[in-house]
Simulated assay, not measured.
Amino acid sequence: MVADQETMDLILNAVPQKHPFRFIDEIIELDDDHIVGSYRYREDEYFYEGHFPDRPITPGVILIETMAQTGVVAFGLYLTMRQKDYSLEETKQLTTLFTFVEGVEFNNIVSPGERVIVRGEKIYFRRGSLKTRVSMERENGENICFGVLAGAGVMLNEA
């Protein structure tokens, strides 16, 4: 089942990361098997000042975090909501622990001001754990990086 725009907006708003550590602006596509999202790295992002002062580039760890926020967190919230028939309010109480990174390869750098597209494809989703094949590309389709990421959803405020 393909998610409608309202559902994609609700999932985006449920992502627990907030400014200045939120790296997902939009969910473009979403269904039970894949997600596509985007993010534009602002020229005033806090990490550019030190990485690197004379030629700012986006740190690899931030690229991985960007892929995780779309491909694991947002996607995992959607799949959990569908599987467990959670309401939006229950879904907002979920957080995701980033548990696994494998085979991440970097092919290009990302400069301030660039918009990237993140694609996540479900490998499996079981017992609240999601494993995805995730890639990041430029708007023209040029690959920036890719790898396998996983996370586990946990309900906050449980007694």
Rank of each mutant, 00 (worst) to 15 (best):
D32K: 05
E137A: 15
D32A: 05
G120D: 04
L77M: 11
V118P: 03
G141T: 08
P56V: 12
D32E: 13
Q93Y: 12
N13A: 03
E105H: 08
I64D: 14
D44S: 06
K122A: 11
Y124H: 01
E121A: 01
R22Y: 01
L130I: 12
I62N: 09
S111Q: 11
G128L: 07
Q17L: 13
F75A: 00
F106C: 09
I28Q: 13
F52K: 10
M136I: 12
Q83M: 11
Y48M: 04
S129D: 03
S135D: 13
T80K: 08
E45F: 01
A68N: 06
G120R: 02
L77K: 06
E139H: 08
Q93I: 10
K92H: 08
F52D: 10
S135V: 09
F23V: 09
R82S: 05
H19T: 13
Y41G: 08
Y46R: 14
R40D: 02
D32C: 04
N140C: 05
F52W: 14
D33H: 14
E105G: 07
E102F: 05
K122C: 09
G60A: 07
E26Y: 10
E43A: 03
M67F: 00
I62L: 15
F106T: 05
D85I: 06
T58Y: 02
V73P: 01
I117H: 04
P16A: 09
F75Q: 00
T58M: 07
F75E: 00
P20V: 04
F100T: 12
Y86T: 02
R133Q: 12
E105A: 07
R82F: 06
E45Y: 00
L30C: 09
T132Y: 02
N108D: 06
A74T: 09
D85V: 12
D31A: 01
G50K: 11
P112W: 05
P56H: 10
F23C: 09
V61M: 02
L77F: 14
T99W: 00
Q69S: 01
A74E: 05
V104Y: 15
Y46M: 15
R55G: 07
I57F: 13
F21I: 15
T70F: 00
F23N: 10
N107R: 15
N107Y: 15
P16H: 12
R119Q: 10
G60P: 05
H34K: 15
D31W: 10
F98L: 08
N140M: 08
K18Y: 03
I64K: 12
G128N: 03
I64Y: 07
F98E: 03
I27R: 04
P20L: 10
D33I: 02
R82I: 12
D85P: 01
Y78T: 06
I28P: 13
I57V: 15
G103M: 07
R127I: 00
K84W: 09
E49N: 06
T96M: 13
D25C: 02
Y39Q: 08
R133H: 11
M136K: 07
F75V: 00
T58N: 03
V101K: 03
